[in-house]
Design a protein around this nucleic acid. Structure first.
Lengths: 153, 153
DNA sequence: AAATACATGTTGCATTTGCAACAATATTAT
DNA sequence: ATAATATTGTTGCAAATGCAACATGTATTT
């Protein structure tokens, strides 16, 4: 007679709930900042900044969106002048690459500075070491799942 | 000169990605089971089973959906005969309560048995203690955020 | 050389999701 | 007693999301 684990007590639930809480916090944070980009656009912009010369498909994998939505996010960022897109070659194939503009770089700095203030409040309760350890555990757990499940991302 | 944490390296990203991977795994699992309920419907059914006499609004908070979608999920479960809904009183107010039917109970048992087989594959890599510790860390981190952010769930 | 398969990005559409407004009812305040 | 407020569930609608089909161009195979 094994004790059954119910949904509410599962790791599945804890992950969903914690990610949800985190997302709501992020949304409220960006709302308060009064900035003109969404958390997702910021994530994309930051990731482009860290991976110069990345193509859309690879960016999609990193920011966890499909190709269609990644394109839409980039449309928005381009319209606001935070990135520029250009045709380039990758493995002898034409791909759309992109780069962060000076304006986009300034936006990254601005958002980073503003966010830092708020995040300190949270960090004060959870130590850097604890968060680091949590991330390590999450990565291990994730790799574990990915070993058994085929993801089509 | 502080070293900036980028999106890809943040706890935000690890949470989002891990929850995402977990969700995809769940979807694939239920797909393979060939059962007639979605992971979310199963979560609701299991939670109703654990909280007899719960009203819709309270259930919504537990399964992390809003009232509208919770109602829709319950419509589906009721239509399939896994739950019954009835009017009852709570704090002298009329509320819709629900209970798991015998058919619903059987469905819970069936899904649980089938899932157990698959989950063992994953558990073999991550020890129960590790997962337990991960859940404890997630809860602490979550409580930490909730202390500073007002959630309207 | 032609055909097939592959990689990349875009468009259209259907599903999911959540928010706001509403209806019904009960509680509290004036 | 009447009005204002609160709780619960439903409906309508708009935004987000992802999937499948398509267009374009390249690599590989025959």
């Amino acid at each position: 007679m094994t004790k059954r684990t119910h949904y509410i007590d599962s790791i599945y639930y804890d992950l969903e709930l914690t990610a949800n809480v985190m997302k709501v916090m992020g949304a409220q944070l960006f709302e308060r900042l009064g900035t003109d980009i969404t958390p997702m656009e910021h994530a994309a912009l930051d990731t482009i900044f860290c991976n110069t010369g990345i193509c859309q498909r690879d960016l999609a994998k990193l920011i966890l969106k499909d190709r269609a939505n990644t394109g839409r996010i980039l449309d928005s960022l381009e319209e606001k002048g935070y990135i520029t897109r250009f045709i380039d070659m990758k493995n002898n194939r034409l791909v759309k690459k992109m780069g962060v503009t000076e304006k986009g770089h300034q936006k990254l700095e601005e958002v980073h500075d503003k966010i830092e203030v708020y995040l300190k409040t949270i960090r004060s309760q959870c130590s850097d070491e604890e968060i680091e350890q949590l991330q390590v555990s999450l990565r291990k757990f994730r790799e574990n799942i990915l070993a058994t499940v085929n993801m089509n991302i």
